[in-house]
Amino acid sequence: MDREKPQIATSDDLPHLRSLFEENGPLSAYGDSCQFDLIFDANALLRDIYWLSVKANDKDTRTSVLEALESEVIQGYAPSYLRTEIAEKIQEMSLRYDIPERVFLNQWARFEGHIHFVEVGGPDEGGSDDDDPKDVPYIRLHEMLDYPVVSRDTDIRRMGGRSVDPDICFTIRLYARDNAVELQLVSMAAYSTMIPAAVVSGLTNFFRQMIVPRARSTPTWAWIAIVMIIGIAFIHPQSRKYLQDTSERLIEGISPLLGVAHTLLTPLIDEYGRATLSSAETRRAIEDSLQTG
């Protein structure tokens, strides 16, 4: 029977976890979380707004774009004109589908709160006949920030901009979920081993003298279990005394505990390996797409 996959963390945990691993964070040396700066065209959001307003069965349902924005793995930008364009399109959808505007506006608000708006002016009616005037604000912002534009509109590229398809947000959402698991497990491990320097020194000597000669073939999970078990022993007074007085008996008696630790820790270690590999692969794919978009 397959083991049930442990629920370690979700993308909603990323904002907090990211603060631990940022440049001046307490765990900055042990991991990182990438954020992607993107400019959003109206057409990249309208389909999601429609689907969430009309098709979604659960009011808490999220699209890939919305989850990536809420997890802050996407830093979203848009010209201020986006608000005008969305409002106009919502009016059209309300009339077309006979649905109150407020239904669409409520869903739009979920996106709007996570987008940084920049004033770059409105549509340029005096441009080339081949240019869509409504695309001009997005091109201006792209030239200002040099971030790719998330758009289904091929005119963005034709007008000299760099664009990516909204489908990239699905990959970014996968990265957010895996990165959250990766950072959560690293933070759990880091904080569980934060014990005084004197104890660390004593534990190191203990490993050298007692464990290493007897455990050349000890697997990775066992070392993790040993650290956790001995860490607890050092912290708890009675266990500490037991460790000091009967270290040889501890080595003999630790094997059954390792069996339990193996059962408990293996799913976490497997999930860490999967999440780390997956987040690295998706991150490379995202970065490649954004560079060549």
Rank of each mutant, 00 (worst) to 15 (best):
G76T: 07
G253Q: 05
R173M: 11
D2S: 14
N24W: 04
I8A: 10
T61E: 14
Y77L: 08
L250Q: 07
R96H: 12
L257W: 07
R283D: 07
V164C: 11
M1G: 14
L174W: 00
D2Y: 03
I8R: 09
A197G: 06
R3A: 15
R62W: 00
K241C: 09
D178I: 00
E67P: 00
A222C: 09
P137N: 12
E4H: 06
S28M: 08
A225W: 03
A87Y: 00
H16M: 14
R47H: 10
N24E: 15
T220G: 14
A180P: 04
L82F: 03
E271I: 02
A189R: 06
S289Y: 01
V181S: 06
W221H: 12
D58H: 00
L258A: 10
F40P: 03
I172K: 02
I156M: 09
T84H: 07
G113I: 12
I232V: 06
V150E: 09
V73Y: 01
Q184G: 06
F36I: 03
V136Y: 02
M210K: 14
R208N: 12
S163G: 11
S247V: 12
K59Q: 10
V150R: 01
E119P: 01
Q35F: 00
F117M: 08
R96T: 13
E4R: 13
M93K: 11
G31N: 05
R110H: 02
S289V: 02
D135N: 06
E70F: 02
